[in-house]
Design a protein around this nucleic acid. Sequence first.
DNA 1: CACTTGTTTCACAAAGTTGTGAAGTTAAAA
DNA 2: TTTTAACTTCACAACTTTGTGAAACAAGTG
Lengths: 161, 161
Amino acid sequence: MTTTPEPQPSDEAARRFVEDFALVFTNAGLQRMPARVFSAVLATQKGSLTAAEIAESLQVSPAAVSGAVRYLIHVGLMSKAREPGERVDHYRILDDAWYESVGRKDAIYRQLAESIERGMTALGPETPAGKRLQETHDFFLYIAKELPLLIERWRADRLEA
Amino acid sequence: MTTTPEPQPSDEAARRFVEDFALVFTNAGLQRMPARVFSAVLATQKGSLTAAEIAESLQVSPAAVSGAVRYLIHVGLMSKAREPGERVDHYRILDDAWYESVGRKDAIYRQLAESIERGMTALGPETPAGKRLQETHDFFLYIAKELPLLIERWRADRLEA
DNA sequence: CACTTGTTTCACAAAGTTGTGAAGTTAAAA
DNA sequence: TTTTAACTTCACAACTTTGTGAAACAAGTG
């Protein structure tokens, strides 16, 4: 046994950033533990961490890490990789994690639009309510269409530089 | 006493829409009760409802309605109005509720960018981690800037038609 | 001014969520 | 094939959130 029993010997400022960013990310809608795990990996120099390292650095159980990374992988923010003949998984943030997570919001707006459309039928398309819904519907579709284009434009601009 | 004791005599399809839309809206991030209240008002022909009507139509307590509308007003999705010499409040959805609620998301991205910026300082701007954060930071600021422009473009297009 | 009706506040119970320890599973190493 | 380290699953306890009933409050009305 030569590992440190301390919470972690390394950089205190980094740990504060991890919690700070996780908090903001939580406000943005992510659950707490996935936000912390993501944040912990984000703040590493090498860009990846093993489950044990995550657990140690956040002071949580391996079970919590397991649940969080499963979720993060599911929503396409992280990937798990194991080198051939290795025993540990390395978790890293996908290169286009952010683009995806913003761009994927178009699905939400599309769902809203679909629900509104059903509502128009239910309430009568020619009634005042129906007409009000029509505009909302169009707006949601507009956003759903434009969001991915926005990301694309960013990508294109980025390639030039 | 001449009011109906039934859950509500009126349109069944409308009630289904209310719950359907509330659900989608909840998936999009709103709490359940505010989503239901909003949805109930959205589905009315006259475009407004009193607290009592909301409570009746959703089969919830006045307290729940009170809490929900307070929240909805706070986040700028609803307004409360009382006619001079009236005893009841009428709740209605703000005309630009949706524009606001989408456009206001730029604040979230701005906060993310700010947190990332603090992280860059903490991790060292010239380190691998610092450089990775830089790009994320720029991306968030880009989104924060473009979202309101997107809404504006919609508004402009709409005025023409 | 007392009454009535509509709204808000508050303590609490019910329901839902989150993270833990412990047991179970997988796969490399011996 | 047995051992061992890494990871996952699961039942449960702690914590949080949500909606309720009851009481307090506010504002027209007679």
